[in-house]
Design a protein around this nucleic acid. Structure first.
Lengths: 207, 207, 207, 207
DNA sequence: TATGAATGAGCGTTCATTCAT
DNA sequence: CATGAATGAACGCTCATTCAT
């Protein structure tokens, strides 16, 4: 199964033959077909498996959320860690793109995954808005789309050109620019409310 | 050729058979093989063709660059326009992901393309820094990576979930958050230098 | 085993997988292989089993034979009964056809079965000839072939088109036409011998 | 195509692999797939082709029908000829049995074929009834079923046991017994109607 | 006795590619 | 220039059979 995920992540669904998975895993085709009805079930099982793991790690790393900007930074760090340690994120990215017009069911699965991810991010942003550390005139869902898009774009560029694109650096930038944009200036806050973290920090430097 | 690009954009390289292109284009397979040595050459020809067009439109839309923030906004607008009008961007995205580990030569081509794109963006950012409207403590190349990543991430999310992700809105956000992050505060500017555009605008609202 | 016969009757030998039999019978493949050396032995065992049953029922229904025309009618009735109650006859027919050129051993088995059946029929006809109710210028074996062929043809047509071909009606016709053909005219009978059944009803003739 | 028919006739549909047809015909699998969409189309094309030929030969051999008994005899002769010269009849028989529960579409095709055949036979019988050579108290369709069944049963027995079952002899018997059954005695005919041919001939001998 | 896991040969089918015309 | 026919390698999948437990 790990082998299958590896192959799918590298060569895509169509580019991965059952033979390749089998021989890479040191078993025969027949053995695979004993455990999975067909290639698609193998894929879906792999997706289900890994997505659950990914979501647990993201949520687990920052729960409970008390400091929204820190939570976003932590999520970015987890994404970097996952993306560089194993190929889970790449697995998702590769298959998501491939599925777009070729596999409606799989595409729907990825759509749901991304929606959950954005929804989770939006919750964090909304919390920040309630706390007064984030401005309220930006829709939380839009901020979530920006963050998710930044993550995806960073990963894709990194996979594409690892020697030029340092994933950690870019991902930090994704957080920085979003937080910078969202953070209200202290002197603009209504009386009695204070940003808990020095917003200046984010504006000034990067990594 | 247009048909080929269309098929590649939709179904990817492996998912597109010569038969499909031929019958969709109303010609025979033999005719295709008369004009292109093999499937890969057809692909490369298509890529070369479209990339040139894309770069011309981006550069042409903002040249010469005088107002960096406006230039970034304009580039974002062009990307939205291209992405929604035809499938050129999707063509690039789809094939880029697919080529990652399966076609080194194609992958190199896309690497070069992205590098040129980021390099062009970095130039704009650098100009803004020289003009004093952008802070100088952020590397221009890093800002370029963030912008490019934001564009890619926005497009991918849009293709994946068009009814939830409005490409125009997200892309505007990409510009907003980056410009917000890069823009220096007026009171921090050295004497005699003034931001030409009201930086505050970007902080306050969106779209 | 009943399940196996059922599957073979319906889908043929090649069309029946061990998996199908096993899961239909609620056991595992391994269990089948414990009881039968291979698929072919399972088939032969099934054939042997059912043929014996069929022959017993046919012979049992009319023995001892005293009235040849009545015996033929009775055999036809038994065939109809068997063919419509369970799928035994169909089992034989299906496998017989399939085995023709693909399984010499099985084909030989069916050849023997049919020979025994015809031989039994010929005995009845011969008895009728000795009794004087059947004309003697027709070879008994030929009459047996006609009867057997009529039965087979009737069944096959019935399986093929049950709503148009009423097996009982056709089978009755098989008996009628044969008896009509075999029955000698009363005025041609030697003195002292009388047809026991009303030959007139069945008999008409010529070409 | 001829090769395909030959294989299908011998080994059935499931028992015939594309490889077998291809190599028997001296071409490659790919060539077959260039001319036929899939195995089933190849089969249907073969069936369509051969059925048309069969029907033409049967109808052509006795048209126009003037003498019903002679027409039946002629049809039997044609069937014998076709069955012994090429494997067309066997092709039909084999596939018809196999298709019963495994291929509804093919089964329907064979159902239609048999219906047409019986319908044609019934027409001949009906003509005989109008001419007064056949008794009218037997439904023409039933007589047709008996004749068709006799033909099928004769062929099947012959394929199964060629050294014991002489197709020509049995087929002649099929005609004899049916005509014998259907033919009215001259003295039972209504006044003014006379059997045109001497009926006695058929009673006396066979083959 | 019975099971679950595994094997490997073979099947129907696809597809990039070639080639005579 | 273009076509239709053909090739052969590979693919997804099935299935009879084996075997350790």
């Amino acid at each position: 199964m790990t082998t299958a995920i590896d192959c799918f992540a590298r060569y895509g669904y169509q580019g991965t033959s059952i033979d390749r998975i089998a021989s890479a895993a040191g078993v025969t085709k027949g053995a695979l077909y004993y455990h999975f009805r067909d290639k698609e079930e193998l894929l879906f099982e792999a997706v289900k498996d890994r997505i659950a793991e990914f979501e647990e790690r993201v949520v687990g790393s920052v729960s409970p959320v008390t400091d929204p900007p820190a939570a976003l930074a932590e999520i970015a760090r987890v994404c970097v860690h996952i993306a560089t340690k194993n190929n889970l994120r790449r697995f998702i990215l590769t298959l998501m793109v491939e599925a777009l017009d070729t596999n409606p069911r799989l595409s729907q699965a990825f759509r749901d995954i991304l929606r959950r991810f954005r929804s989770y991010l939006a919750g964090i942003v909304r919390l920040g808005q309630e706390q007064g550390v984030f401005r309220s005139d930006v829709e939380a869902s839009r901020a979530a789309q920006l963050f998710a898009g930044g993550v995806i774009g960073a990963e894709l560029q990194h996979y594409q050109d690892p020697e030029r694109v340092d994933l950690g650096v870019v991902m930090q930038g994704v957080v920085d620019q979003l937080v910078s944009w969202l953070t209200v200036d202290a002197d603009q806050l209504p009386h009695g409310v204070h940003a808990k973290r020095g917003a200046r920090n984010n504006r000034r430097e990067s990594r």
